[in-house]
């Protein structure tokens, strides 16, 4: 494993820690899109179907379990926890996320590395992850007061994507036959979705003003 990949995984993990900190300690999910969180839970469930079939490494298994457990517990907190769910900004979280699922599934049936159940589900998870951030970005645009933890959460998620691209570039040159068009194209699309957010996030940090996205 190269440094970019490890750094990517760590920022991904950090984003989850930041979000859990907000939900668990502050008991607030204000500014967080439940739709995005539901999509992530579905992404991990579809992608990690091989969890108990294919052993890659202890690191890999533990990380998969962490992402599965954290994504489902975040959804649980936002839906069921009696204090947290009251802070959920339901009125502004209106993205029709169900309409993302079917096209991603259709695309996975058409474009996959191999036409088997697990490979189709893997491709589906890659496509869905690429667009899963959209409800969150829309909600951020509608949120007047984006708190620091929410901004940091999205920033770390975006950083994870950038680092994964660097990891692929590194692997392409160091590992023979490492060609994965599906994850590369989807990953680049996913990262581009963050470009706008990154711009405003860095500007707010540089000018030391509160983060606000133009509507």
């Amino acid at each position: 494993m190269n440094a970019f990949r490890l750094a990517g995984d760590m920022t991904h993990l950090l984003s989850v820690v930041v979000l859990l900190l907000k939900i668990h300690t502050i008991k607030s999910c204000a500014g967080i899109s439940l739709k995005t969180q539901e999509l992530y839970a579905l992404v991990f469930a579809a992608r990690y179907l091989d969890l108990f079939i294919h052993f890659i490494s202890l690191y890999n298994t533990v990380m998969k379990l962490v992402f599965l457990a954290s994504s489902f517990s975040i959804v649980w907190y936002m839906r069921r926890h009696k204090i947290v769910r009251r802070t959920y900004d339901k009125d502004h979280d209106t993205f029709r996320h169900h309409f993302l699922v079917l096209p991603c599934l259709a695309l996975a049936l058409l474009i996959n590395e191999r036409f088997t159940f697990r490979e189709v589900m893997w491709a589906f998870s890659i496509y869905l992850e690429a667009v899963a951030i959209l409800p969150q970005l829309v909600l951020l645009q509608r949120t007047r007061n984006i708190d620091n933890l929410t901004g940091q959460y999205v920033f770390f998620l975006g950083a994870y994507r950038v680092l994964y691209i660097l990891n692929w570039i590194y692997r392409y040159f160091t590992e023979p036959h490492f060609v994965h068009w599906i994850s590369w194209v989807a990953g680049i699309v996913q990262t581009l979705l963050y470009a706008d957010f990154f711009y405003y996030y860095i500007m707010s940090w540089k000018n030391n003003v509160k983060l606000e996205l133009p509507a």
């Binding site: 890659i56 590395e113 893997w122 994965h180």
Partner: peptide, 10 residues
């Protein structure tokens, strides 16, 4: 190449 080898990423 076994494509499962490619799925070593999270």
């Amino acid at each position: 190449m076994d494509s499962s080898l490619g799925h070593d990423e999270l």
